[in-house]
Write a protein that binds this DNA or RNA. Structure first.
Lengths: 170, 170
DNA sequence: TATTGTAACTTCAAAAATTAAAGTCAATGC
DNA sequence: GCATTGACTTTAATTTTTGAAGTTACAATA
């Protein structure tokens, strides 16, 4: 019934969203990619309350996306940083950025909030494309979508829940 | 202070998240990509309450991501579908899927929830990569990140808010 | 030595968002 | 005529989030 059950779906998107899909988490991930590591700075830059930041950090830690480490003893101080699992969210962040640059009403003539320079070629990353292993650009219209058995079963169960609950009632 | 103010950031990620970043919206977008168009089906497959679904659809419509259209008169019935702006979220969905397949504990040996076949080459899309215009794969470590002036100003303002509020108080 | 400051949180009450269940409305199928 | 469908809306209860203040353990400054 609740949000937790989507974590158990066979759909990888649903499972990703079970941990990333709330008001603040992806903004926090963005902030990590910008290099911010300390609690107070994360709070200031995202604008979230300290209470929520603390609970989100705990969740991300449990999920293995972020790790907490002490960077000094006396006074004990901690920082947070992305694990390999967290760093692998780079694609999601780049995709959100690309879409936002195209559609969120920013003036393309303005200086971007963050300039990304591709070190190996030296030029700016203004947009990006998604490629398949075959080397071609992935376009939505070139993709054929088919449901697997487990997901089909899950979906049929969902669609009959409401109707069935009423029908099954004695 | 609130969530709305992130919509006014110069950061395209923040602006994207202002409309996409809550518990249900991206799951709803996924569902649209799977071809679901009707209110009741959207509700059943996402598991959200009808109340919330109605308000999210309104928000997505206002944002130009989804359009509502009547598909029959007498009884009047409506469906929702993605606009070009909504369809352009394909990259975000693919990125979330790719990450979820790698990290959310699904067994790679299992049949995927949804099989994506690349029509032009005939093989399945199990993973994808992000490419820069120069043709190379974009790797996080190859990207140099620099803040633009407007975003720097925004960030400095944020970081001084808390400290300053106390200092400025008469 | 006393006071102030810093970083990383926690606590608590108030406000806002979400859920669950039921209800509405206009037809249609039986 | 009566139950059903589809697209919602209403309402009250529950859960989450916010905002403000407090805590802990030191360090630095007066």
């Amino acid at each position: 019934m609740g949000w937790d059950e989507i974590a158990n779906s066979v759909c990888p998107i649903a499972r990703s969203l079970a941990v990333l899909g709330d008001r603040w988490t992806m903004l926090l991930i963005r902030e990590f990619f910008l290099g911010t590591r300390r609690f107070d700075a994360l709070q200031a830059q995202t604008g979230m309350s300290s209470h929520l930041l603390a609970s989100r950090l705990k969740r991300l830690e449990r999920a293995g996306i972020v790790e907490r480490r002490q960077y000094q003893a006396r006074p004990p101080r901690y920082e947070y940083r992305l694990t390999p699992k967290g760093l692998d969210l780079h694609g999601v962040v780049l995709a959100l950025r690309a879409w936002g640059m195209r559609w969120s009403g920013l003036d393309p003539a303005d200086e971007p909030a963050v300039a990304l320079i591709h070190k190996t070629c030296g030029s700016a990353i203004s947009d990006l494309s998604f490629h398949h292993d075959c080397g071609q650009v992935l376009l939505p219209q070139d993709i054929l979508t088919t449901f697997g058995d487990a997901f089909s079963a899950e979906r049929i169960a969902r669609s009959t829940h409401t109707a069935k609950d009423a029908a099954d009632a004695p």
